[in-house]
Structure formats: C-alpha cells, structure tokens
C-alpha cells in the first residue's frame, strides 16, 4: 500500500437514482472512497449491489434518463467530474481515465479492425498522426502479450479469441497512459488459465506504468490475489472497506463474513455443506433509513430496522457499516430481533 500519498480520485457521497416507470430505484446511496496513486482497489459484491453503477456514475456513463446522479462529488486532478462540461469529460474518458468493460465479446465494434479501435483514442486524445498511432497501437498490442502484433492490427475482433479480445480491450484502455484504470469484471467471461494470464499481465503493467486501478468483480479469489485494498458493496453502499489482509483475515461485517463462507475452495478443508445467504438483495425504492442487509443478517437487532449504520472504524484503515462494530452501542443491551443470534 502507498500510505500517505494524495488520492488521485476522491469520491464523496455519490448518489445515483434510476427513475423508471415502476418507480425510483436507488442504486447508489452515498458512496465515499478514495483511490491512491498506483494502488489496486478491489470492489466486490453480488449483482445488483451497485458496484458497476457506482463506477459508471463516476464518469457519467450511466444512461440518463433513466439514471440520474443526484448528489456527491468526484474529484480528479482538482476538478469535480460530476460538474464538468460534457466536452471536457469526453477528453478524460479513455484518456486520463481508462475503462475496461466486462464482456469482451460485445464491447469491441465488429465492423472495425482492432488496429482502428486501438488507434482511435490515440488520434482523438493525443492527436497522433496515422503513422504514429499505428506504431503505438502495435506497441500496445505486444505490451498486452499478443504475438505478431503489427500484422494483427488489420484483423477484426471475430478473428481473436475471448482472452485475446480482453487483451485488446486492455490495450485500448491503456492507450493514453491513464492515471486511473477502471476495470469492470475484466476476467469474469474468461477461463481460469486465460484469467491467470490476464491477472499476471495486469500486475506487470501496473508496475511498469504506475497507474491506479479499480477492479470490480464478484470473484473473491481474484481480489485476494491482486488487490491492495477492498471495498465490499451491498445495497448501493460500502458495507466494509479495508486492506486486503484485514478484509479476508478479520471480516467484520456479517455480509462479508457470509460471502467468504459461501465459496467452496480447491484446497484445504471441504465442508459437508455450503453455507448460504438466504433471501435476495434489496430493491431500494427510497434511500434506506435502515440497514440494507437486515433481512438476510443472522445477527440483526431491533436498531437495524430503525437506522442505517454509518461506517465504524474496526482497525487500521478498516471500517464496517454495522452496529455490531459501533463501540458506543453495546449489542448485548440492544434487543435482539432474531432469536437465533
């Protein structure tokens, strides 16, 4: 971890609402975090926990309408991205801030060559000539480990395998030497051996280029291997946040604990039965004034219905949004709502 360094990205109290015909859905409810230079921040949670919408909201990539970023600030290089004119924001997207989307099959344009798609940000953001952009594109393609890069520039996406397409996506995101790379489930669609190649590539690129990375995934194993810090999201909020060792070694939110026990492992002890988190993630039609995890929590108290817990510190740089972690509130004295605590 790079302690003490000034954050490259500072997000404060971000809120996003989807206004649909069926009513409002509060997808992001006051998310605050910062990203330090050169670190890798892992974001985990189930689908619908708001992790992708949060990151899309940072760059105002959420479709509006129906989505609307209703509050907060996103500070990058001294400017608030949420209040930046669209034209200036466009200059940042794909330039200083790179984005890798989840599905390598659908996020490349099938009718343009791979070379054209890598050269596009180079010509738009850096104003390179065709020839210079082509040279740089070939460089990038070999950087991400595609053999015979120069001749492959004139190939179309369908001529690449899934793993190679994901490498192309990474090459595009890296084209303009971003300070921040946001990667949304970049390895989820890939097989384990190809995933291992991409994770390895990511680690060496981060060392070489010194960029900060936000890595969104629901795969706790991936996070354990690559992240410096981890943010666990649930119900559009950060329920636990801390250094990777603390999150896995001393998980403090009941949700994080449950999440860690639901995944079977390939090594070590094999439980007879898998633990399950009963129930469904909540669909929030209003900003929550209760703990969003209360219905699935095995340790819910009466207070969890009345108040939405703030993030309480539980260790060095480690906090959890749970009343069990509130030093001022002894849980023993609060009335337990569920009998089997």
């Amino acid at each position: 971890m790079t302690d003490g360094a000034a954050p490259v990205l500072d997000v404060r109290d971000l809120r996003t609402v989807f206004r649909t015909r069926g009513g409002a859905v509060h997808a992001v409810n006051g998310v605050s975090f910062s990203l330090k230079a050169g670190e890798l921040l892992g974001v985990v949670g189930e689908s619908g926990s708001g992790k992708s919408v949060t990151m899309m909201s940072l760059l105002r990539l959420v479709p509006s309408p129906p989505a609307e970023v209703t509050g907060g600030a996103v500070l990058f290089e001294g400017r608030d991205l949420l209040r930046l004119p669209e034209a200036e924001l466009r200059r940042l997207r794909g330039g200083r801030i790179g984005f890798v989307f989840q599905d390598p099959m659908t996020s490349l344009n099938p009718v343009f060559t791979v070379g054209y798609q890598i050269m596009e940000p180079l010509r738009v953001h850096l104003g390179l000539s065709r020839r210079a952009a082509r040279d740089r594109a070939a460089e990038l393609l070999s950087l991400v480990g595609i053999p015979d890069a120069r001749s492959r520039l004139s190939d179309y996406p369908h001529q690449f395998s899934g793993g190679m397409r994901q490498r192309v996506m990474i090459a595009i995101a890296l084209a303009c030497n971003p300070k921040v790379l946001i990667a949304d489930e970049p390895t989820t669609a890939l097989d384990v051996t190809i995933q291992a190649q991409i994770l390895d590539l990511m680690a060496s690129l981060r060392e070489k280029l010194g960029m900060a990375v936000i890595w969104i995934t629901h795969d706790l194993g991936v996070i354990a291997g690559i992240a410096d810090r981890v943010m666990v999201m649930y119900g559009g909020q950060i329920v636990e946040h801390g250094p990777v060792e603390a999150i896995f070694g001393n998980p403090s939110h009941p949700y994080t604990r449950a999440l860690l026990t639901t995944v079977p492992r390939v090594r070590g002890e094999r439980p007879r039965r898998l633990t399950v988190i009963e129930g469904q993630p909540p669909l929030l039609t209003a900003p929550p004034d209760f703990c969003t995890f209360r219905d699935r929590c095995s340790q819910a108290y009466e207070i969890c219905d009345r108040l939405n817990p703030q993030r309480y510190p539980v260790g060095e740089g480690h906090d959890a949004a749970c009343f069990l972690c509130d030093p001022g509130l002894a849980p023993q004295s609060a009335a337990p709502r569920v009998a089997h605590v």
Binding site: V192, A196, L220, G221, A224, A227, F248, R265, V266
Partner: peptide, 24 residues
C-alpha cells in the same frame, strides 16, 4: 488448471506457485 484457481486467501494467493500456460 488447479494452480490457476484463485483462492479467497491473500496470504496463500501471494505465496502460491502458479503454473502459467501460454497461448490459447
């Protein structure tokens, strides 16, 4: 294949020897 599986354990993940297959 087994060495490529990511375990949710940062300590083990960092000390593990991973056999990296090249190519597709």
């Amino acid at each position: 294949l087994l060495s490529a599986v990511n375990e949710p354990d940062p300590g083990a993940a960092r000390s593990r020897r991973r056999i990296l297959l090249t190519g597709d």
